[in-house]
Every structure is written in structure tokens, then in C-alpha cells.
Amino acid sequence: MTGMGEAIASPDCAIEELMTERSLKPANRPAVVVAMVLFTVAAVTYWDASRMTARATYGMGANAASYFICLFLVVLSVGHLFAAFQTSADKAEDADWKAIGWIAVALSGLIGSIWLGAGFVLGSALLFAFTARAFGRKSLVVDGVIGLVMGVIIFLVFNKLLSLALPQGPFERLL
């Protein structure tokens, strides 16, 4: 467990790849990345606003708010750049990226299950079991069964009692 944690636990590994300016101190990197993200979002917003076709006959058009927020984002981006070079941010604590990975698997399990039409119950069983795995539980099968039972109860309550249809797969149609 710990061995794997160490292997992946370099806190800013994702950010390191994004970074090109090697001269910066590691502590400042998050602020620089946020500044870059904000600037990109501002650019996308500007591009989107500039190609709007509907015009308001009176008063302001729908793109006014877009331009305003675009400007706001640029100001914040500059603010982050300043902050990055002036103050040194606290060092982010270590993170267990493996646990994050398991939750990512859990969420993809649910999304995939709904996308491919395998239904809600299987999806929530996967979600429950892999999330429990992320928190260190080893017995995937037991957790899967718990998730399955929970999914069935939720499905029955919603579909039969509240007549609100949750996504159905082959399994749900048997219920």
C-alpha cells in the first residue's frame, strides 16, 4: 500500500507536466497554472461571445455579460501571476493519488454503465464498491453486493412507488 503511494505520490506530478518554465520555485507553480487556466477560459469566452448572432433590439445583448466576465477572468489571471512571483504559497500536502484513481474508476463505472445501457443498479454497485476500495477496503465482492442491494432498493422506491424512471438495463427490466 505504502509502496504504491510513494510511487505516485509526487504531489504536483500532473502540474509538472504542464509546466515549461523550469526556473520557477515549485511552491509557485499552482498559481501560475491557475493563471494560465483562467486566461484560456477568458479566451474561450471571448471567442464564444464574438460569434453570437442574436442581437438585442433594445438595451444590451447577450454577449455583454460574456465580455464582462472575460475581462474579470483576465484581471484574476494577472492577479495570480503577481501572486505567484511575490508570495510563496504553502506547500500542498501529500495526496494519495491511488485513492483518487479508484474514485475515478468508480465514477467511470457509473457513467459507463448508464452510457452503455447497463442500467442504474449495476452502475451504483460499481460506484459503491470502488469508492469503498478507495478508502482502503479490500473485499470488493462484499462491497459490490452491498452496492447492488442498495441500488435495487433505490430503484424499486423510485420506479414503483414514486413512478420516476431511473435508467434501466437488462437487470432492471426483470425487477
Binding site: 442504474f120 469508492t131 462491497d143 452491498i146
Partner: peptide, 18 residues
């Protein structure tokens, strides 16, 4: 905790799907 957060995620996504 494993079950608590498993349950939270199931209910949170269920609310969204519903």
C-alpha cells in the same frame, strides 16, 4: 468511512440522474 462515502456518492449521483 468506506461505506459512508460509497453511500454518499451513490445518493449524490442518484439525485442527479433522477
Amino acid at each position: 468511512l468506506p461505506w459512508l462515502y460509497g453511500g454518499i456518492l451513490v445518493f449524490a449521483s442518484m439525485g442527479t440522474i433522477a
